[in-house]
Amino acid sequence: MTSTAQRTRPLAWALVGPTLALLVAFNVFPLVYNIASSFTNAELIGGEWRSVGGANYARVFEDELFAGALRRTALFVLCAVTLELLLGFALALSLQRGVPGKQAVLTVLLVPMMLSPAVMGLYWNLVLNGNYGVVNQALSGLGFDPPQWLTDRDLKFWSILLIDVWMWTPFMMLIALAGLNAIPASIYEAAQIDRARPWKVFTRITLPMCAPVLGLAVLFRATDALKQFDLVMAVTGPNDAATQTLSTLLYQVVFRDGSVGLGAAFSCVILVLVIALATVFTRYIDRLQSKDVLA
């Protein structure tokens, strides 16, 4: 046994080696570079690096711009995940008990999540346009005062959220459906024999048994929404105080202002957040897998 293990080990490393090497190279190099340049005045175009000590970090922590983007992103993640979860779960419950043409309906419902957010976001500009957008024409036809979805300071953040909900509710629905389908029918039958009320069945059986996969769904969406970039760029661009997220502010700082050093310091702060979330995420998957919840 030992001899086979020793013989096959070089082969095993040859199989996994190239992939791991590429991933390390493309993740460790940027990390080192970001840490190094975050203490300098590095610019996008030319110029020598000069050390500025912790000045960039001081700005990241003091300038309201960065705190604002962080708050806005947190709000975005929270609202997007909650709305998508509730809507998706409601849809999954409706679908699971059967509707005519279930498979076809399900496939059609899933289409939005597969599409390019950048392209669809751009297109939503036409649909939600304040003057000639079809949504506002329908609203004024129904007698409502049509809002300026994309230009109203207080509204555009929520319009972007709306597009995100349109794109990603199907994902939550799909996962919730898997959770619902995994509950054995025998448990429901037992509850029926005990004459449990529907609400009790929902809170005592359906919800707790779906919870592990729903947790996974929330983590997947949260890590994704944290990166929110494409939709904001498509709807308002990177330099809009009402919609700036972590990623779009980073774009603004580095590519419009050219401040690579400041951007690097900001990246490092974001990275700490991302690593914290990734740790929670991977531990959660590990726990579910070792308990065989996902099999």
Partner: peptide, 11 residues
């Protein structure tokens, strides 16, 4: 999980 924008400058 890395946001592309956080690694794009070094790349």
């Amino acid at each position: 999980f890395l946001p592309p924008l956080a690694v794009v400058v070094p790349v």
